[in-house]
């Protein structure tokens, strides 16, 4: 009961103190707000790059064309050999056999021109299209190795995989993704440091208050807790504007582009539930850096 009273008074006083020291609170809040906006942008960027890479990786297919004279038994045996290669997807759907008659039908279905050209090649012997396998890989960055292994299989004629363009793109995006992680983490650390310093200034102006607290017999904990709560409130208040920007900004951005950039080349992450997780993340970062900042700052003024 006593602890509860102390805690509730601390919360009440910290809340009051945010408003009583309004100009300095505004300084801390603005600092949190600005950095959280940058953190939010970095997270959005990173999530979208992630999404794009994931989709590209999922879609990239290696087409393995076999020699024209390959027998039906050999055609089936090759599937097993493909599956044994490292980096080839483990699922059934990762290696799909495409019979030349099937490919012919698919092509004919896809356009009238193909239909008229391929119409007469209607037997296995006359059909000049090659039998093929569609192969999906686990790690797109190791594509080249996989391709050379595929080429070594007896009966394989040519291997096509987007001419390395996708691979390069994905490698670039992988770097971008890693860089955004680093940026987000660095930003969070910088925010904590910045907030700690801003709060240090605010607390310095309240050194007198801390001295009085010590004088009337407040323990270090008694002194620290209200400041930590104050940091918590500052963190929450500092995250309000970034959350509004993320919620409305990202949703309108998504709607404006209809969820796609550069035609349908890049698909944006759907706002729901993405914006809620970012908002939650921002408020948690705000709270943590606010509290840690305050705690660090007040510790300086306590003779421990």
């Amino acid at each position: 009961m006593r602890l509860f009273r102390i805690l509730s008074r601390n919360i009440r006083d910290s809340f009051k103190s945010v408003f009583r020291n309004f100009s300095l609170s505004i300084a801390s809040i603005s600092c949190i707000t600005i950095t959280l906006i940058v953190v939010a942008i970095a997270i959005i960027l990173s999530a979208n790059v992630n999404e794009f890479t994931r989709r590209v990786e999922k879609d990239v297919t290696i087409v393995v064309f076999l020699d024209e004279d390959v027998s039906e038994e050999r055609f089936k045996a090759i599937e097993g050999e493909i599956r044994q290669i490292d980096n080839v997807g483990p699922k059934d759907s990762d290696v799909v056999a495409k019979d030349k008659m099937e490919i012919r039908k698919e092509l004919m279905d896809s356009s009238d021109t193909y239909a008229s050209v391929l119409d007469k090649y209607d037997t296995r012997d006359t059909n000049f299209i090659k039998d093929a396998y569609h192969v999906k890989v686990v790690d797109i960055t190791k594509m080249e190795k996989t391709v050379s292994a595929l080429k070594k299989i007896d009966g394989v004629n040519t291997v096509k995989y987007g001419e390395g363009m996708i691979e390069r793109l994905v490698t670039i995006f992988d770097v971008v993704r890693k860089a955004t992680y680093v940026v987000v983490i660095a930003l969070i650390l910088v925010t904590a440091f910045l907030i700690s310093n801003t709060i240090k200034i605010t607390i310095f102006s309240r050194k007198r208050e801390i001295d009085i607290m010590r004088l009337v017999g407040a323990s270090n904990m008694n002194i620290k807790i209200p400041f930590i709560f104050e940091g918590l409130f500052l963190g929450i208040m500092g995250s309000i504007i970034p959350i509004i920007i993320v919620t409305y900004g990202y949703s309108s951005l998504y709607n404006y582009f209809d969820g796609e950039l550069f035609g349908n080349f890049v698909t944006l992450v759907k706002p729901n539930p993405f914006i809620f997780s970012i908002s939650g993340f921002l408020i948690i970062i705000g709270m943590i850096v606010g509290m840690v900042g305050s705690w660090r700052a007040v510790r300086k003024h306590l003779k421990i």
């Binding site: 006593r2 602890l3 102390i6 009583r20 009085i212 009337v216 407040a218």
Partner: peptide, 23 residues
Amino acid sequence: KLLPKSTVYENVAFALEIFGVPS
């Protein structure tokens, strides 16, 4: 050494509040 932004009552009560004395 008074808290300038607290009232007379709050300044005095402050010394008791930190110990969790009932209101």
